[in-house]
Amino acid sequence: MGHKQIGGAVMIAEPFRTRTEFRLVDFVSHLLEPHEREVVLGDLEEGGESASQSLLAILGLVVRREAALWMNWRPWLAAFGLALPFSFLLMGFSLSVSRAYQQYVGVTILHATGFNVGPGFALLLCNVLLLAGWSWTGGFVVGTISRRTLWVSAALSFAPCLFCLERFRVESLSRLCLLLFLPAALWGARRGWQLACIKRSSAIALAVGVTALTIPLWSSSGLWLPNWALSWPAWYLVATARKA
């Protein structure tokens, strides 16, 4: 039990572990790293802090820890240079792929005389692979460079999705078409979070593949800058790759 002298009177603070607020303090303390949580809860127990004081102390430390992470350039790049703009661009490209699917495959199968693999289908295939490549590499780089702030990047990535889903008004297409990029992006983010970097040979193959797949887009959308902006994570992976 902690004793504190305030203005000449000795106040006896009930240990927080005996109070009902303990659950809340314990829950919030999980925001700390395990070893730090152990030390901080021990200090609060030893100091006989009340539940509210403990809660404020833990939250204060969590905020300071989180703020310290943002002193580095990496979380900023991941959140505002990758997650946010890439979500918009990849949603646009997902929609483009969905429309291409409708035009080239849907029409061929449903209305024409049979399944006909022509240049339109090849372009669609290129676009699907490119969408997967851009999404995966973008997600991987986000996962790599901002592991401890990944939740912020994820939130900044999902916010545009919700915004666009709410305003999507194309009757012939499902709203989910906007999210075609998401599975590959999430997979990439998970792998980036786990691995940090990939083999150089794999990275080069991926970057060359993504860049080569961008070339057919010249005929449809020209040298549109966002197409190339979406390719830089693939080359970032090459720059940071490890030797096999």
Binding site: G42, E45, A57, G60
Partner: peptide, 30 residues
């Protein structure tokens, strides 16, 4: 505050001015 204490300890340890390690557990600390 605990926040100021431990972030400063971490910073000083990074600079090589302090060394920290995990000590023993006591009943007083739960």
């Amino acid at each position: 505050s605990i926040g100021a204490l431990y972030t400063t300890i971490d910073r000083l340890e990074t600079k090589g001015l302090l060394k920290t390690w995990m000590g023993e557990a006591t009943a007083q600390r739960g």
